[in-house]
């Protein structure tokens, strides 16, 4: 909790180039990923990304309810991003707010291009994301975990989706913003991609960045996504070690 400050700290990066949580500028927080943690779901994953703790379940393809939601030529992908009341420093009122509705939507759009949805017409694939603890960057952690939960469910995919954010903090471009940096930094740029073909499936930005800064951020995100991709693949294969 030490660096979860109520007021903006004077410096988010110190004179030695270290951030509040002791990381270097282009250092990822530690990522732990576990596949198949839930019994009932068709696929599931649990991710710890820094202090973010997120659990994802995939149900489906399954019969769709209500029936009129059925699409004639593909499965309907539905995502629900939800934060537990105790997941934030101040209690979050349970239930969907506008932020989580938007996040549910952009996460869905980030995962959708990776799936062969046309294989399962008229069905639903439901992705349930529960943020148990948040420390900045929950959407990229959610996407990273959801994509392997989908693979765990045996849903045909073109590629996994890896995600990471970059941003601008104290005038410097940094990788993987924590909550203080997200809150007090100058810009936040979450990106998700299918690493095999380097296709961007999620990109959002808020804050202010020049085009050069944007390009640099994009580059460090791509490199990070490649690393995260390896973590994802390892976690998937780990499940089947006997």
């Amino acid at each position: 909790m030490s660096y979860l400050l109520k007021e903006k700290p004077k410096k988010l990066i110190n004179e030695n180039g270290l951030r509040l949580d002791g990381r270097k500028r282009l250092e990822l927080r530690p990522i732990k990923l576990k596949v198949g943690t839930l019994k009932n779901a068709n696929g599931s994953a649990y991710i710890e990304w820094g202090r973010n703790k997120i659990i994802v379940a995939v149900y489906g393809p399954r019969e769709i309810h209500p029936k009129h939601m059925a699409l004639p030529t593909e499965a309907r992908l539905r995502c629900r991003y939800s934060m537990a009341a105790f997941s934030t420093p101040e209690r979050k009122r349970p239930g969907p707010d506008r932020r989580s509705i938007e996040l549910s939507k952009v996460i869905k759009e980030a995962l959708k291009p990776a799936l062969f949805l046309e294989r399962f017409p008229k069905t639903a694939i439901d992705v349930f994301i529960e943020v148990l603890e948040s420390e900045g960057g929950t959407r990229v952690a959610s996407i990273t975990a959801a994509s392997i939960a989908l693979a765990d469910a045996g849903i045909p995919m073109r590629d996994l989706v890896a995600a990471c954010a970059a941003g601008k903090v104290d005038g410097q471009i940094v990788l993987d913003l924590n909550s203080a940096e997200d809150m007090y930094g100058e810009a936040d740029l979450p990106i998700a991609m299918m690493p095999r073909k380097k296709e961007i499936t999620l990109i959002q930005m808020d804050g202010k960045m020049s085009i050069d800064e944007f390009n640099e951020s994009l580059k460090i995100c791509i490199d990070a996504c490649d690393k995260i991709y390896e973590v994802q693949r390892k976690a998937l294969i780990e499940k089947f070690k006997v």
């Binding site: 693979a151 045996g154 849903i155 045909p156 995919m157 590629d159 095999r196």
Partner: peptide
């Protein structure tokens, strides 16, 4: 894992694979 390259496209394709740019990839775990 999904998206992993398995072979160049010089074989018949069975289940759960797809082709892109001359290579065969797995579409599933």
């Amino acid at each position: 894992t999904p998206g992993q390259k398995i072979s160049p496209r010089n074989k018949r394709m069975g289940d759960n694979v797809f082709v892109e740019e001359g290579n065969i990839y797995s579409e599933r775990m």
